[in-house]
């Protein structure tokens, strides 16, 4: 399978290990990711806060680049996914917006590109069965809670992803590699990402509560599918011991026995290796980590 790939800005910086692990997992599964040449920022939460036209025009430019290829467009970042999917739907369903964008960007909207999240591609195109078959080191006994945050699931008419109140996709993938998924009620709560710099006090409360509830659920770690959530969860925890946040692709890579897993974990603000090591000491996780 062959996909177009839009990493988004975070995966070239604070979420670099999400990009590295996504690429490694896709390569291992024989799926090709072709990064769009010359893509631009989706505008994130700032464009729609200040300027409704730019909020569509910025992702629309990237969609116009993707149109040159007859491939689905795969996006790891939840915020980018939401903005690109939203712009695609706006152009698809609203002829006024479509013609405005066509004249502003100088292109013809074809509506031929399916905008998809990495999570959806792995669950739908690869499937849990294959994920389990590829697992060389099942992460038995490793307890996590899955965390989707907001923009992968909401608003449901844009995200069109799983059940917006009780999504299961990430949990199913995790169970496929032997991880124990603990039930909790906060999988789609907000981490406060867009206020992280300007009101860190508010965000510390939100993240603190998520970390506390994850611990109460008996989790060793939180598993995410969003680079903004992941960095926010790790940067804004204040009370010890801190609970690490993984990208789901990192755990897939670890379970597949991919050699680079250790390099991804070194990038984390909260080093997750002690947690993984303690599991290995228990003989519960056969992690291929360097000492």
């Amino acid at each position: 399978m062959n996909y177009s790939y839009y990493p988004g800005c975070s995966l070239h910086s604070t979420g670099i290990e999400y990009g590295l692990s996504t690429r490694a997992v896709f390569k291992h599964l024989g799926l090709e990711l072709n990064e769009l040449d010359d893509w631009n920022c989706c505008g994130a939460s700032s464009a729609h806060a200040l300027h409704p036209t730019l909020a569509v025009a910025l992702p629309a430019r990237t969609l116009s680049l993707a149109q040159a290829f007859d491939r689905d467009l795969v996006i790891p970042c939840a915020a980018c996914y939401n903005r690109l999917k939203g712009a695609d739907l706006a152009m698809r369903n609203d002829s006024r917006i479509r013609s405005q964008m066509e004249s502003m960007l100088g292109f013809q909207y074809a509506g031929s590109v399916a905008v998809r999240s990495v999570l959806a591609v792995l669950a739908e195109d690869v499937g849990i069965k294959r994920i389990s078959e590829e697992t060389r080191h099942p992460l038995y006994g490793f307890k996590v809670v899955t965390y989707y945050g907001c923009l992968l699931v909401r608003p449901p008419e844009i995200a069109q992803f799983d059940d917006p109140d009780n999504p299961q996709v990430m949990g199913n993938l995790m169970r496929g590699i032997g991880v124990e998924v603990m039930p909790w009620s906060h999988a789609t709560d907000c981490c406060g990402g867009s206020l992280s710099l300007s009101r860190s006090d508010v965000v510390q409360n939100l993240v603190g509560r998520l970390a506390e509830r994850a611990r109460e659920a008996g989790a060793d770690a939180i598993v995410t599918a969003c680079p903004l959530c992941q960095v926010n969860l790790e940067m804004r925890q204040t009370s010890e011991p801190k609970i690490p946040a993984f990208y789901f692709t990192e755990l897939l890579g670890l379970a597949f026995g991919l050699p680079d897993a250790d390099k991804w974990f070194r990038k984390h603000l909260i080093d997750p290796r002690p947690v993984l090591m303690s599991l290995r000491a228990d003989g519960r996780v056969a992690a291929n980590l360097k000492r």
Partner: peptide
């Protein structure tokens, strides 16, 4: 004030 500043700086950089 700082929430607006953040959005403006972000858009300026983009």
């Amino acid at each position: 004030r700082d929430a607006l500043l953040f959005h403006r700086l972000f858009m300026g950089v983009v």
